[in-house]
């Protein structure tokens, strides 16, 4: 008998509430796409914003709404792109190559002097408001770590010499630091490319560069002459190596009068 009442009570309550909810739910149907949640689960969840949307959820919504590309999550890379494509039922797109941030300045504190002493907020943007920055070279890294601060993946750190160091393992090539650097010294490049590059961004004339930095490119064109592949051009007194032509022969490294040409993958990386 007791068993019976129990069944009736719970069953009755279930019926009453279930019925109420069923009626209510019928009148207030809300469209939901389960794929948003699924994709959101796949994403790294750092809410870094590299995709151009204000967070992972937003990106997922836009992917489902076909407003964002499945490969949009840069930190996620190829794997996540594939998974998203699977959820969305489309063919996989996106590049295979692992990319990392690269810093194009070698002007550490000891080789690229300051023109005056700066006291105040330790932030590159803040420091630039004073006479265009305290560094004598007006293209060089100020070394106050605004880029390191901006990295959502803890992949950039300031070295003892005042230059940032990229942690290649952690770097996801999200590009936040590229935007953070007020001197545009960071770029995203293939992690494993085998070519040489010139870690300098100074467009000053050679004479000026020699005054303000020991490791700046003077645009002397010695490397241009040395390169058997014609992969190097000098524009605005700055040598640029075309990585598609470079065969990594190393002639330019020997030719460079300031010995600043390096293997691309070996600069500023931990």
């Amino acid at each position: 008998m007791e068993l019976f009442t129990a069944l009736i009570v719970i069953g009755g309550m279930g019926l009453v509430f279930g019925g109420l909810l069923a009626v209510a739910a019928k009148h207030f149907a809300v469209e939901e796409d389960a794929r948003v949640e699924t994709i959101c689960d796949l994403l790294p969840g750092a809410n870094c914003g590299a995709c151009g949307f204000p967070g992972c959820i937003s990106f997922a919504e836009n992917v489902v709404g076909l407003k964002a590309d499945a490969s949009g999550c840069i930190p996620g890379g190829k794997d996540i792109c594939d998974s998203i494509c699977k959820v969305m039922g489309i063919d996989s797109v996106g590049s295979e190559v692992k990319k990392v941030a690269e810093i194009s300045c070698l002007g550490s504190r000891d080789v690229a002097p300051d023109k005056f002493e700066y006291h105040g907020v330790r932030d590159c943007n803040a420091a630039l408001a004073f006479s265009g920055g305290f560094k004598a070279c007006k293209y060089g890294c100020l070394g106050l770590g605004t880029c390191a601060e901006s990295c959502p993946f803890d992949a950039l750190h300031m070295g003892d010499n005042g230059l940032p160091i990229v942690d290649r393992e952690r770097c996801t090539a999200c590009g936040i630091c590229v935007k953070a650097c007020p001197r545009d010294l960071i770029r995203i490049a293939d992690a494993d490319r085998t070519c040489k590059y010139v870690p300098c961004n100074s467009k000053d004339k050679g004479k000026v560069v020699r005054e303000v930095c020991e490791v700046g490119c003077t645009g002397c064109k010695a490397c241009v002459k040395a390169c058997p592949q014609d992969a190097i051009v000098v524009e605005d007194s700055l040598a640029v190596i075309d990585s598609s032509k470079c065969d990594n022969c190393g002639e330019c490294v020997d030719a460079c009068r300031r010995s600043i040409i390096k293997d691309a993958a070996k600069v500023h990386h931990a």
């Binding site: 007791e2 009442t5 129990a6 009570v9 719970i10 309550m13 279930g14 509430f17 109420l20 909810l21």
Partner: peptide, 18 residues
């Protein structure tokens, strides 16, 4: 009244969820 005190957890959670 029905002597079903042991069902309180189920009953209450049903109430709350609904």
């Amino acid at each position: 009244p029905l002597d079903l005190v042991y069902l309180r957890t189920i009953a209450f959670i049903l109430v709350i969820a609904s």
